[in-house]
Design a protein around this nucleic acid. Structure first.
Length: 698
DNA sequence: CAGGGTTCTT
DNA sequence: AAGAACC
């Protein structure tokens, strides 16, 4: 054995019980079944990329005039990040706006609450990296890990060992000494060149600068990437692992050790990284259990065998807003509606169908003022999910608002006073619909080099739509991407086929409803008997929606509409699985993001999102059904359909508000009518949010 | 903690 | 569903 000291190869190998005899082979076969070829590298080359003050860079790209001024990105009353001009003047991340203006009166502020542009740019960066190497893992919007071990192995095979050098910094090493060390760490040396090339690609193609760290695992790559701050890169050599770990000012600085963990460690008397390194394993296990204890101890030593897991398409989409105070049902409903319409729009562009909806709130309370969110979730009925990606997502908004309000009333007693400071709406359990829906890029990527037992979760769906042929080469020709990257096959069961079918054979909302059977129960209203469609429904009630309502409301509605002439309610127990839709090809719109890669590079990466649910067909324009009110005593401007979908107590809540407004009965407007918006339509932005959208104008 | 995300574990 | 972690 050569002198290996504390190199992580040694530690990692010890702990995973791999015998380290195959020293010259870059790979070690783990597990007894060689056939399965779960091959893991003995030493990896991991890159960590971290974009400089990301939001600020995006805004400076959008408006170059901001380049040279001190710029802060503001969310609510906080500067979440700022450019380096502002930093020179003392502005720091997460500083309050008042403090920042204090430090730097000329500070220019740009609102950054809408993440759309950041998210888009963020995925362009990830996609660009993906065009070079399949193993890319996102961490937040501005960081990416890339495992380039294989690429390095290939390059190494055909690079002369002589005159290797490092690009950029080498941690704790004078540049004069670095060259001497290059030959003993050829993988990392080559890795530093790859990192430089990728950073250059990000800069030339996207205009963004950032830092990179090059090391043998994710932990070290991340730690080292920040050592030289704007727009530089640093390589960490194994012999410096102890240095970099020891240089951390506290346990909290270890990625993976958050506030709670740091506190528990402190309770054990541990404050420094060395403390943890030297702490008796048994005691640590007693506190954290074996798995967490092992992980913590390893992290303190700079050991991290966690793989770079391809992130793929997001597993959930959410939208939230925070505020000082929200305390009326009406406000809540409006906010939810607003959040939902933008979320649904995002969901529609994504192309997948969500099957779970979650509503999260944060209640104000003197103690525990922060943290402590509360959430409720429920399955999304299929027909609602389908509407999200269909042309008339307005329907989806309406129905999901009512779903959301039901969840809301499970958390908040709307009769009592309440005080919210945040609302979040979230779609999860996202399922890819339709076999060719994701376009050729991703369908092939499902099957490339199949059948490794270790399947990476997530499909690639809207991201990384890249066939095996589209291999970027970083200038060096003929680097291919053989094996690797196992994706789970697309789920295209009958249900998803049906989903697509139904949508494409779309017929205007109300007209086409032969009353589909409610997919039995739905929003988990404890064993309620769902009133079946064999009952007669009031004319203004969509049977699908009706089936979702709490039984009390259903009964109310039935009672209040004594004589509804009803079409016979047939219940086709199976959806008519008629025509498989022909999927529109993705020639469509802006869903199709294409990189303009230099043809001279001999590489092109094509990205396409899933085809959008469909441009609004002429026939699909929702037939505004002006129905008679269910008569209760709704204000003239309230669409009874919307109203009818709300939970009972919210209906009464709103009714009382309306009654206040129209002094039919008691209470002379204790609350300001606040009908600020009498001006019709033409709201700024095409959104025209607000519930008023669903109200009739009279 | 702030703010608007996101993922993973319990 | 909550907690913890990351940005």
């Amino acid at each position: 054995m050569l002198a290996m000291e504390n190199s992580e190869d040694e530690v990692e190998a010890d702990e995973t019980e791999w015998k380290q005899d195959l020293k010259d082979s870059p790979f070690v076969v783990s597990g007894s079944l060689n056939l399965l070829k779960t091959t893991t590298p003995a030493h990896r080359v991991i890159l960590h990329f971290d974009l400089d003050c990301f939001y600020a860079q995006v805004e400076m790209l959008r408006n170059p005039a901001l380049r040279d001024v001190p710029l802060g990105i503001q969310q609510k009353y906080i500067i979440v990040t700022c450019n380096y001009v502002a930093r020179q003047q003392g502005v720091a991340k997460l500083m309050s706006v008042t403090d920042a203006k204090d430090k730097c009166p000329q500070l220019v502020l740009v609102k950054g609450e809408d993440l759309t542009h950041y998210r888009e740019m963020s995925y362009q960066v990830t996609d660009l990296l993906l065009s070079f190497c399949p193993l890319v893992e996102r961490l937040g919007f501005d960081e990416n890990y890339v495992d380039i071990t294989e690429m390095i192995a290939r390059r190494l095979a055909r690079t002369p060992q002589a005159n290797l050098s490092f690009k950029g910094h080498v941690y704790n090493t004078a540049s004069a000494d670095a060259d001497a060390k290059a030959s003993s760490h050829p993988e990392l040396a080559l890795g530093s060149h790859v990192a430089a090339e990728l950073r250059e690609a990000i800069h030339s193609r996207l205009g963004l600068t950032g830092c990179a760290g090059i090391a043998a695992n994710k932990l070290l790559a991340k730690l080292v990437s920040g050592t030289f701050k704007p727009n530089q890169q640093t390589t960490l050599l194994p012999e410096s692992v102890d240095d970099i770990m020891g240089a951390l000012s506290g346990l909290r600085k270890i990625p993976g050790v958050g506030h709670q963990t740091a506190k528990r460690l402190q309770a054990l008397g541990l404050v420094s990284v060395q403390d943890l390194q030297l702490f008796p394993p048994t005691d640590l296990v007693r506190e954290f259990g074996a798995p967490a204890a092992t992980r913590l101890k390893n992290l303190s030593l700079g050991v991290d065998d966690s793989p770079v897991t391809p992130t793929g398409a997001p597993q959930s989409l959410s939208d939230e807003d925070s505020f000082k105070k929200m305390s009326s049902a009406k406000e809540v409903m409006e906010k939810i509606e607003q959040l939902l319409s933008s979320l649904i729009e995002r969901m529609r562009k994504d192309g997948r169908q969500p099957h779970t909806f979650r509503l999260t709130i944060r209640k104000y309370s003197a103690t525990n003022k922060w943290h402590s969110r509360e959430s409720r979730q429920c399955p999304i009925p299929n027909h609602v999910g389908q509407k999200i990606s269909s042309a008339s997502s307005d329907d989806a908004v309406v129905q999901l608002v009512s779903v959301a309000m039901k969840l809301f009333s499970k958390m908040v007693d709307t009769h009592a006073a309440f005080h919210l400071t945040l609302i979040n709406v979230c779609f999860s359990n996202l399922q890819t619909r339709g076999p060719s829906a994701s376009g050729r890029g991703s369908i092939t990527s499902f099957f490339v080099h199949g059948s490794s037992p270790k399947t990476h979760r997530r499909d690639s769906s809207s991201l990384a739509g890249r066939g095996p042929g589209a291999d970027n080469r970083l200038g060096t020709p003929s680097e291919t991407t053989p094996e690797k990257t196992t994706k789970s096959p697309p789920s295209c069961d009958a249900a998803t086929l049906w989903a697509k079918t139904k949508e494409s054979t779309f017929v205007p909302a109300e007209a086409s409803h032969p009353v589909t059977s409610p997919s039995s129960t739905t929003c988990r209203d404890h064993g309620d008997t769902v009133i079946t469609a064999t009952h007669r429904l009031p004319p203004n009630v969509d049977p699908d929606v009706f089936s979702l309502l709490p039984v009390e409301i259903q009964k109310e509605l039935l009672l209040e509409s004594p004589e509804s002439t009803r079409q016979p309610c047939h219940l086709p127990s199976e959806p008519p699985l008629t025509s498989i839709p022909t999927f529109r090809n993705i020639n469509n719109t802006d869903e199709c993001v294409v990189y303009e890669l230099d043809p001279s590079d001999g590489c092109a990466a094509l990205h396409q999102q899933q085809p959008p649910g469909g441009s609004a067909l002429p026939g699909e324009t929702v037939a505004e059904d002006k129905r008679l009110s269910c008569d209760c005593e709704l204000p003239v401007n309230v669409d009874p359909k919307v109203f009818s979908e709300l939970p009972a107590d919210l209906q009464t809540e709103l009714m009382t508000e309306w009654k206040q407004r129209k002094p039919l009965l008691k209470v002379p407007a204790a609350k300001k009518p606040d009908r600020a918006r009498e001006k019709k339509g033409a709201g700024r932005g095409s959104q025209a949010n607000s519930l008023l959208k669903y109200f009739k104008h009279t």
